[in-house]
Structures are given as structure tokens and as C-alpha cells.
Nucleic acid binder design. Structure first.
Lengths: 79, 79
DNA sequence: TTTCATTTGTCCGTATGTATT
DNA sequence: AAATACATACGGACAAATGAA
């Protein structure tokens, strides 16, 4: 689903929603690493800050654990 | 042309008129970005909101397209 | 050990959107 | 009409952590 840049939902929220959906559907199972920030930048054509916010949102929800130098890993915790 | 702060024409209108003139004369050709709000603030010594209103006026006329986080770009549309 | 690529952490500067006063 | 504050977003730069060559 493409990003709506003019909508009222922040871009980082939209990306977080897509990633969360990927977790729910099993595209990113527990233990799997999410796409890196650089990959998200390339995929969604956004600034890295925006990609970081999306991942951070999921981390704050407990859905992923971010490990410096490694990536963001799906925890397997039910939201 | 200096801004008349005590006249009957709103400051944002005066700035919009100057920018429109710049578009008409080719100082800001199609595709060119207008001075940023911050630059307008510095140039005309006005509040940012005033600069924003000037740009918005041009956007409502279809002369420029405002892109969040980027700037206001000359569309090339004849008003 | 050193070197290198990859990934996240942090900071800076700039710009627009929205709300409040 | 004007000033202020905060959120969102883009771009670049460099540091730190990790793992592999």
C-alpha cells in the first residue's frame, strides 16, 4: 500500500501500520529482523528519521526489540 | 519595494504581490522554489505566519504548489 | 589483530502543519 | 493580524555497535 503524503496520518504512522500488519500476518514471524532503516528509506522513499520513528513506534508497543548494530527483531509479544 | 506597515493593505498581501511579481517577471520561473518562509521572515522582517499567508495566497491562486517539508514551487500556471 | 560492511544512535539545520494565545 | 510553541518531515554527517573477512 502506497504512502499518503498529504493525508492526516503521519507518514511514520503509516509505515508502522504496514510493518505491524506484516507482523500480524506472519510475514515477519517472531525472531525475524525487520527491514533495516536504510531499506525502509529505500522502500518508502522517506527520510531515515521517518523510518526510525516507525520502528520506534513498534518498539514502544513491545512488538519489536531494537538492538544497536543489529536491527529490530520481532518479539512475538501479542499487542 | 519596502513593506508599508501602516497602510491599509495587509502585510501578507504586500509580500504576496511582490512574490507574484517575481513570478511574472521570470525571477522565479516554473519549477523554481520560492524563498523559504524563514527567508521571507528575514527579508521582510515579519512573523512566520505572515510569510506563510503570503505563500498560501499564491498557492490558492494556483501560482505555486506547496510541498510539506520541501517548499513552495512555481507551477507555471497562468493565474 | 585489523579491516570492512552493515545497522542503529545521535546531532545539526531547514521547512511546513497545526494549535494556542 | 501577529507571535509562539510543538509536531512532522527531509537531508546530511558522524559516532557506536555488531559481525564477518
Amino acid at each position: 500500500m502506497p504512502i499518503d503524503r498529504d493525508g492526516k496520518v503521519p507518514i511514520y504512522r503509516q509505515i508502522a501500520d504496514e510493518l505491524r500488519h506484516g507482523i500480524d500476518t506472519g510475514e515477519y514471524p517472531a525472531g525475524r529482523r525487520l527491514p533495516s532503516e536504510t531499506e525502509l528509506v529505500s522502500t518508502y522513499q522517506v527520510a531515515r528519521l521517518t523510518a526510525r520513528r516507525a520502528v520506534r513506534a513498534l518498539a514502544e508497543e513491545g512488538l519489536v526489540e531494537v538492538i544497536p548494530g543489529r536491527g529490530a527483531f520481532v518479539t512475538g509479544q501479542a499487542a
